[in-house]
Design a protein around this nucleic acid. Structure first.
Lengths: 218, 218
DNA sequence: GTTAATTTTTAGGCTTGCCTAAAAATCACC
DNA sequence: GGTGATTTTTAGGCAAGCCTAAAAATTAAC
């Protein structure tokens, strides 16, 4: 049985390490969790003692093979609840995060099983992120930032990298949503901004930064 | 912002005091929360300091007028989640308690508003207990224990006093459910047990103890 | 109305998870 | 490759919420 704090650390380490691909720094974790480096060191020692992370002093942390499934269960719960909030309770995709942060710690395998069933076994959350199954496995959609697409290249928006409320609200405003067909009509060399056609209908101008946060499949 | 522990104490004090009608003993709270009397004294002092309970040393505790709405919000959330679990996720009425104990602490007024809406503004939970509205008000159904009904008296089962899993499983087994029409056909003087007709169809024999836990409206 | 039993409170201590400040290790730069 | 800046760890402390053991108050029993 993991504490709420332990679950949050594991999830953060999983995310920051890109699922275990690279070491994570103490400071990065501290930033992500709004805490201090000293607190992170404390907790890492504890998780290391439990075998859930790999850790060498001053050399960074990573999630361990034992830690991965624990992190993935939390991520699974978080994303299932997000689907519930948007699909059933009519939450807006920029309103779900804080609530899902709380709901993800509810501990009841039956609840999650039934929720998954109730939602029709969704594979992706409202931001396009894949939902791990009970075994921690998930589908990978090939994702490319729109910014890497050539002029006249196009694709379906499958996910957004930044899921912050301001960014999502901005996307709403200009009419970009998950599933939209985006076509890069022009790129401005000066600042890297793009002219994008949405669903063959509406043209919008977006900055390089925004473009980097839009992930499409070609 | 109340902590999880504070919320649980307030809820317990609200319940044990019958909504503020009588003083509650330190030991009763300790029993109910599976903790020790000394811990209860600690917490009571804290809640008293916040003005959420009334307390005089050695004289028992009660919920204060400021504490009531806080307790009622937790109770409202608990019961709404129970309805969700039973109606939407097909939980059995004896499986919901532990999960609802966790869900009741999720803090998001919007979530509760939307959940209430999604459930169709239910007024009673799966055990027949009334769900307070946003203002902490709730309907009172006149409730009488079946054991106090005379022979040939009848009524609709509106609630159960004991909501423990074994008791609810037993009721399922003999075919008694919320909404059933119960008629006392005979009372055995020897042990106080009853012969009860369910929905005019099936006759069952129940002990005095069971009868005392079935609440009907006449 | 004393005395004994019970209940409640106090005192002191523990764990978890956080903090600040200082020390140690690593990194970055010339 | 030394030196200063940065990062990380250690050391010591704090609040919340729990605990046990002992003291104080209340209640019950004769």
């Amino acid at each position: 049985m993991l504490s709420l704090a332990e679950e949050n650390y594991l999830k953060t380490i999983y995310h920051l390490s890109d699922g275990g691909l690279k070491e994570v720094s103490t400071n990065a974790i501290a930033d992500h969790l709004n805490t201090k480096a000293a607190s992170v060191t404390d907790m890492i020692k504890k998780l290391n003692g439990k075998g859930l992370v790999t850790y060498k002093k001053y050399k960074g942390v990573n999630i361990s093979e034992d830690g991965k499934p624990k992190a993935l269960i939390v991520i699974r719960k978080h994303r299932l609840w997000e689907v519930f909030l948007v699909e059933k309770l009519k939450f807006h995709w920029d309103e779900v995060h804080e609530v899902a942060e709380q709901l993800e710690h509810i501990s009841s395998p039956l609840l999650i099983k039934r929720l998954d069933e109730f939602l029709g076994y969704p594979k992706f959350d409202p931001h396009g992120d894949p939902i791990p199954d009970e075994n921690g496995e998930f589908k990978f959609k090939p994702q490319v930032p729109l910014s890497e697409t050539d002029i006249n290249g196009m694709g379906i928006l499958v996910a957004v990298k930044d899921t912050s409320s301001p960014f999502l609200k901005y996307l709403d405003k200009i009419g970009i949503y998950i599933g939209a067909k985006l076509k890069v009509q022009d790129k401005v060399e000066f600042d890297g901004s793009h002219e994008v056609l949405i669903d063959g209908k509406k043209t919008v101008f977006i900055s390089r930064e925004v473009s980097e946060n839009l992930l499409i499949t070609e």
